[in-house]
Design a protein around this nucleic acid. Sequence first.
DNA 1: TTGTAGGCGTTATCAT
DNA 2: ATGATAACGCCTACAA
Lengths: 353, 353
Amino acid sequence: MADRLTIYEVARRSGVSTATVSRVMADGKGFSAATRERVRATAAELGWVPSGTARGLASRRNGIVGLLFPDLGNSGELAEESPLYVDQVIRGAERAATSAAHAVLIAATHTTAGRELAFMVAGKVDGLVIMARCLSEPDIAVLSNSLPVVVLANRYSGDGPDFVGADNRSGSRAITTHLIHVHAHTDLAFLAGPADSPDSGERFAGFCEALDEADLPVPDAPIASGGFTETGGGAAVAALIAEGPRPRAIVCGNDEMAIGALRVLRAAKLRVPADLAVTGFDDIGVAQHVRPALTTVRQPMRALGEEAVRILLDRIHNRATPRASVVLPTELVIRRSCGCRVRPTSAEGGTRR
Amino acid sequence: MADRLTIYEVARRSGVSTATVSRVMADGKGFSAATRERVRATAAELGWVPSGTARGLASRRNGIVGLLFPDLGNSGELAEESPLYVDQVIRGAERAATSAAHAVLIAATHTTAGRELAFMVAGKVDGLVIMARCLSEPDIAVLSNSLPVVVLANRYSGDGPDFVGADNRSGSRAITTHLIHVHAHTDLAFLAGPADSPDSGERFAGFCEALDEADLPVPDAPIASGGFTETGGGAAVAALIAEGPRPRAIVCGNDEMAIGALRVLRAAKLRVPADLAVTGFDDIGVAQHVRPALTTVRQPMRALGEEAVRILLDRIHNRATPRASVVLPTELVIRRSCGCRVRPTSAEGGTRR
DNA sequence: TTGTAGGCGTTATCAT
DNA sequence: ATGATAACGCCTACAA
């Protein structure tokens, strides 16, 4: 921990110039086997760790991809609930990056304190994956103007950055169709998330498509909104069943709201799925543990992370490719809350379709 | 994406020197409110993203902590099984880092290809958290010689780097004592992991302590080793029950081996826990889904990650503190495989002690 | 309050 | 095959 060891010292001790040391360390060409060995030996002997920072500055390549993800529930408890969502993306990103000899710089970003961190991260990476709801669109535009950016799981309205997302619409259509065809429901309601959520919009669209395909009446708008939260979903459903003729099935925009719905319905002495079917979206961890186990749609989070980084690396190495827009398939997970009677397998707790 | 925008351009356009721009961007003092606004305005207008790399070089601070973790099962399937272990550490690290305005640079490291990446990471961060089995001890020594290092979940034999780990010994003692006192077992066996695993060693030590406290005979060595893998554990138990008088309870060094044991015992028509009690260690995700649900010991992975980064930041900002060695408590998770009859709660699938 | 200028530790471009 | 040396983009004394 003495004075920082630099390339100069290594060069001096091995009797060569810094340029040669640099070449050797980069595995480049242009040196004899003898010098190569000599340099590597003294480097190892000295325990020299080249400054990646200086390297990055000089070479304009950092070997790092950034990943900005939303700071889900800094409240602590909530974070316990949906660990998989973001974690899976991180792992996927890490895998894709590692196999290309890149590291991943991660940071949680959310409106306020996040912005600064986001820019800090942007200044240290070769490219950036930005998850939904991490940054405002103007900020994304600024960043994507100075480095390659891939927007993840969030349709970006401009046509600048590449985009990777899950097929929300098809997933929603599939689960709705399941309720219609398998369980013969004709009176379904869609519980939406925040009005400005593109995901919620896509899922509602899929819901409508399924109704339309079945020649059922298509609503103009979701029956209510639950803000993607458990309490919000519960409140919306409470209002719903209080105010009049209730639907036979509630297609929730995400799992949290579905779980809130289950809670409220149980309190109201309504049986799920006997009196009312309920479905979710996302397949968060608790979905398979609630009673009844939640029928839902799983997003391929790991694959999303991988794909995002793959596209990013592509663009880093070849900037002039056409804009990519990848939509990965979702997966219907049948459990009990739709009315099916499946016995959960030990590992999955559900049946994939 | 034109020519990279630099501080010079921003300085020129706002009619000040680069030093002033630097000061303003760093929120330092020493400039009038007017200049401040002017600089920030042109910076925003130009969409300038300061180079974190250059910043890091010049200031010798990167605002990044590195996290090296083992590349669990690049085989793909295995990775599906124990997602929480590493993910939780990552999230914990991320939280601690974020709240100190740092980002986290992560990379999977495992013997071969990892070494290079590890050094690359080391060159770009202010400090490094190294998880167990990521890097050889000599390599750790080299790195800890040129930047602050915290070793995680792996007792480091030297006295260089700070250490953070879970109390393997107490956890193992607790689960063994549970088998002895609650279930009145007197004939217990310990199934070890790899011989060179400090964790396995600690857990065996805790096992022995419990036996000793109960005045039961203390073995010199584990009854067998299962290499911490499911197949290894299964094979070891198969041999065990084939060769002679079988113990009444098997304390496994980790969950994977315990799950292998359950499989083999079922195949052998032995009932768990009626004929034989089995316990694990770690509380991986599937532990609560196997039949019978696995009684095990949970490590506070999230907290470990947080603590590791906290200590690291401490040392980064104040190098001359005494070596830290933090051991976090583990938690006994009672399920069915020990003989208890608990009804799992929906959220936890176990009872914590 | 503001500017000048010398690093920070590499890489890369010329030479040789 | 090797060596000077100018970038790389910013920070930070030191001056003014």
